[in-house]
Every structure is written in structure tokens, then in C-alpha cells.
Amino acid sequence: MDSNSTSDLRDRPGVVSRFFSSIEQKYQYYLDRLTPYTAVRWTIAVASLLIFVFRILYIQGFYIVAYAVGIYWLNLLLLFLTPSIDPALNYDDDDDGPVLPQSSSDEFRPFMRRLPEFKFWHSFIKSTLIATTCTFFEFFNVPVFWPILVMYFCILFFLTMKRQIMHMIKYRYIPFTVGKPRMTGKEDTGKVVVG
């Protein structure tokens, strides 16, 4: 056997790596196909959330898993509601990056999120499936007094959302757009004025 044939064998990917590569390609293919269907994606997300909640309620356990995934979802929501460039931070005037308009005469710039909607959905689905999978392993069922976790999560959610809403009010941005932005000013009547 010569050295060229042995190097060819070493350069070829193994069976296991080809298997996982094909799985990854199929997964990416279906994600790409699902991307434009926002309503379908979020329907799947709500269905997976309901399955997780019903599993937790049926088992009457795994409250620490529910609490941990709830904190993660809260973090995802905050990233989704936050602009990619935070106006609270002092940036240099030389920075050419997009910023939020500071007055009504500034140019309209669409709201750019720190976490885009698709990545928010994808992370939500993955975390929900991982949390649901954790409920099948008994060592994740740590005994806790769940009302304290619920109360602490509600307080944390309230304080975090209050801070985020105050941030939105202070820097005058709304992370959601409803409809198409319209131009303000005189409408073109179609008449040509020669002067």
C-alpha cells in the first residue's frame, strides 16, 4: 500500500461524521423552509410550551426545571425587546452605526433588535424541548417549595419589565411596528407648478 492511498483514507470523512452532517443539513433545510411562516412557527412554539406545562402539572414535579427555563425565556424576551445598539450607552459621534432617531425630524430607521425574531423563536423551541426532555430524568426533579419559585419569578418578571418599559419611554422607541410607516407632509397632487 502506498502513501497516497493511506492519506486518501485519512482525508475522507468517517461514517459518523457523514451521518451527523446529513442530519445537520436536513435540519437546516427544514428550518429554512419554515422561516417565512411566522404564525406557523409560533403556533408550534405555543404547542411545545403547552406540552411542557401539562407535563409539569401532570407529574407535579420538576419545578426547578420550569423555573430555570422561565428565567431563560425572560432573558430571551429582554433581548428581543432591546435595540441592537443601546441608546443608554454613550457612543462616539464618529460611530457610523445605526442609532434610534432622537427627534421627529430625524430620518426614519427601523427598529433593529438585539435578538431577531427567528433566533428568538429558535432558542425558545430548543429550550422548551430541552426542558421537556429533562422531565424524563428523575435526577432533575429537585424537591423545592414551588410557590416561592412562582412568587420570585413573578417579582423578577415585574421588575424587569418595569425597567424595560421605562427604558422604552426614556429613549422613545417601540419594539413593535404595526402596519407600514407613512410619510408625513404635503401629498403630491400631481400638478406641475412652473415658476
Results as ranks from 00 to 15, higher is better:
115 L>G: 00
61 G>F: 09
88 A>W: 13
182 R>E: 07
157 F>A: 07
183 M>E: 13
29 Y>H: 12
53 V>S: 14
182 R>A: 00
23 I>C: 06
83 P>R: 01
1 M>Q: 03
31 L>M: 10
167 H>G: 06
173 Y>S: 03
26 K>A: 15
74 L>G: 13
38 T>V: 13
15 V>I: 14
25 Q>G: 08
168 M>R: 05
4 N>E: 15
48 S>F: 13
42 W>T: 06
172 R>L: 06
120 F>T: 08
64 I>V: 12
178 V>I: 09
194 V>M: 11
1 M>H: 11
31 L>G: 00
144 V>E: 00
15 V>W: 09
33 R>W: 07
163 R>G: 09
164 Q>S: 13
110 P>G: 07
121 W>Q: 02
15 V>K: 11
119 K>I: 14
12 R>I: 00
5 S>I: 05
184 T>A: 06
126 K>M: 12
45 A>S: 13
24 E>V: 00
167 H>T: 07
119 K>Y: 11
155 I>Y: 07
18 R>H: 06
129 L>M: 12
74 L>Q: 11
29 Y>V: 04
122 H>E: 09
78 L>N: 08
135 T>A: 11
155 I>R: 05
117 E>A: 15
25 Q>Y: 08
154 C>G: 12
181 P>A: 15
103 S>Y: 11
51 I>G: 12
48 S>Y: 10
131 A>H: 07
73 W>T: 05
35 T>P: 03
131 A>Q: 08
101 P>Y: 01
171 Y>L: 08
19 F>R: 02
62 F>W: 04
106 D>G: 07
146 W>A: 15
195 G>K: 13
58 Y>D: 14
150 V>T: 12
57 L>V: 02
